[in-house]
Each structure stands twice: as C-alpha cells, then as structure tokens.
Simulated assay, not measured.
Amino acid sequence: MTIDEDIHLEPYDKHWADRFSNEHQTLIREIGPYTSAIEHFGSTSVPGMTAKPIIDILVGVENVLHTNEIIPKLTAMGYDDLGEAGIPGRLYLRKRGRHAYNVHIVLYRGDIWNHNIIIREYLRAHAVEAERYSEIKRRIVSQGTRTLLRYSDEKNAFVEQLLARAKVWMNGVQSE
C-alpha cells in the first residue's frame, strides 16, 4: 500500500466535528490507556476551511513503546499502518470507508504535536488566514493537482510560513 492517493477538496462541513467526536470516543475506548491526548487537527478542525474530507487525528504518546499496543488495536479497527510515511517521528495510519480518517501518532508535546496544535489554534483565531490557506489549496487543485503527495509538496512552503506566523502569535498569547 502506498501513501499516495487521489484527493479532492470540499467546503467546510459542520459534521466533520461530529465525525471526529465519534471516532475519538472509539479511540479512547480502544487505545486511551496508552495515550496522553487525542486531538482533532488539520483543516477539518477549523470552522469555515476548505479541506480534503478526511478527519486528521493527532494521538500523543509519552512513550514510543506504547505504539506496540496501539498499532494492533488500530489495525483491528480497520486502519492501515503506513509507518512513518516520510515524516520521522510520526506513525501514520489511515482508514477509508464511508468516512475517512488519518491517525498520526507522535510524541506528546514534541515538535510535531506542538506545531500542529499551534497551526490549528492560529487558524481558528484568524479567519482571514484560514481563508487565505483555503484559497491556496483550491488554487493548487484547480491547477490540476489530484494526488496527496503532490498536493502536500505544493502547499508546503505556505504551511512553513503559516507555522512561523503561528509561533509568533502563540508566543504573544502566552506572554500576556
């Protein structure tokens, strides 16, 4: 199985939060004892954003040995284990069906965890930035990009700039 897959974008759907909530309850039941936190992140977690209709779930662990318990439980739930999938320090699993989910297992409060949470909070607090990001994603797809890896590559520079702005904002918020 390859990480690359066909993608498309959809306007914000208020049901995305419900889909996360339902999957979150199942994840807590199945892997809760091995996790420090489970969060909804990515564009489906930001009201108003255009997104791939895939719920991204961040699973934070204190100890990487817990992944030995988590991975078999997730695969039993229908998730495909794709390993690090090009991002060291992250284990990536996905489930496709009536609804689509990605689980990203990372070190709780490590860089990957923190960066994703900071971006989410920044976009939730800055609707103009969320719309700007949505527009960039729509433009990438309108120019013919239809696969995950190419889509991710084409928006990477913007995401890096977004993270830099989000870090400055978060530092200002925390110093208040």
Score class of each variant (00 low, 15 high):
41 F>G: 01
49 M>L: 10
113 W>Y: 14
176 E>V: 15
25 Q>C: 14
167 K>W: 12
42 G>M: 10
161 Q>V: 02
156 N>T: 09
100 A>R: 13
170 M>N: 14
103 V>A: 00
4 D>G: 10
115 H>L: 00
131 E>C: 08
168 V>Y: 01
53 P>F: 08
23 E>T: 02
154 E>C: 06
79 Y>G: 08
62 E>C: 06
166 A>S: 08
168 V>N: 02
93 L>T: 05
171 N>P: 11
9 L>I: 07
174 Q>S: 02
62 E>F: 11
116 N>V: 10
89 G>R: 12
135 E>D: 13
159 V>M: 01
22 N>Q: 14
160 E>H: 06
60 G>N: 06
119 I>C: 03
16 W>P: 05
137 K>R: 15
112 I>G: 03
27 L>G: 13
139 R>F: 02
51 A>P: 12
27 L>M: 15
138 R>V: 10
46 V>N: 03
9 L>T: 04
84 E>Y: 13
149 L>R: 13
19 R>G: 12
162 L>M: 05
78 G>Y: 11
79 Y>P: 07
5 E>R: 09
2 T>A: 04
174 Q>D: 01
124 R>E: 06
88 P>I: 01
114 N>P: 03
89 G>K: 13
113 W>V: 09
83 G>L: 05
65 L>T: 14
98 R>D: 10
7 I>L: 13
31 I>H: 08
128 V>A: 14
82 L>P: 11
117 I>R: 05
112 I>V: 09
55 I>K: 09
78 G>D: 09
151 Y>S: 02
70 I>G: 01
167 K>C: 11
75 T>A: 04
147 T>C: 06
131 E>I: 13
130 A>V: 15
34 Y>G: 01
39 E>I: 01
75 T>E: 09
162 L>G: 04
32 G>D: 00
100 A>M: 09
141 V>F: 10
94 R>Y: 00
171 N>W: 07
29 R>L: 05
98 R>L: 09
95 K>S: 11
136 I>D: 03
134 S>W: 02
117 I>N: 02
43 S>E: 14
78 G>K: 05
171 N>M: 12
82 L>T: 11
